[in-house]
């Protein structure tokens, strides 16, 4: 199953690279990357160091309607960044400066 997926991935990358006229030697990195991912994935499955109580979802919370302001302050033209620098919209536990 995994081998099939990797073969398809390699073929896809290969096709893309050939389109650009390059020799896709970068594909050789897939082997070490697969080894590293296997080691880390299995280790995490056994040790569960990343787990904790999801109190944000698993506690009874009643929130009133949310209020706020949205003010356009500037425009960005021609940036190569695909996202806001330091996007922490979903990282609820990352604390920022307190007022």
């Amino acid at each position: 199953m995994i081998a099939t997926v990797l073969a398809e991935l390699a073929s896809t990358l290969l096709a893309g690279a050939e389109g650009d006229g390059d020799t896709p030697w970068i594909l050789l990195a897939l082997g070490p990357a697969g080894a590293g991912a296997t080691y880390f994935g299995l280790w995490r499955y056994y040790r569960n160091t990343h787990t904790s109580h999801a109190f944000e979802r698993e506690t009874r919370i009643e929130a009133q309607s949310i209020t706020g302001d949205d003010a356009k302050v500037k425009e960005v033209k021609g940036t190569k960044r695909s996202q806001v620098d330091g996007d922490n919209r979903t990282d609820h536990r990352q604390r920022v400066q307190r007022f």
């Binding site: 919370i61 009133q64 033209k77």
Partner: peptide, 24 residues
């Protein structure tokens, strides 16, 4: 070949009142 983006930047502010029951 490189990808570029244009974007509008907003100052965002939010306020929420809430109650929590049995936080452990």
């Amino acid at each position: 070949k490189e990808t570029y983006y244009d974007a509008d930047v907003y100052q965002v502010q939010r306020h929420v009142d809430f109650t929590v029951d049995d936080l452990t």
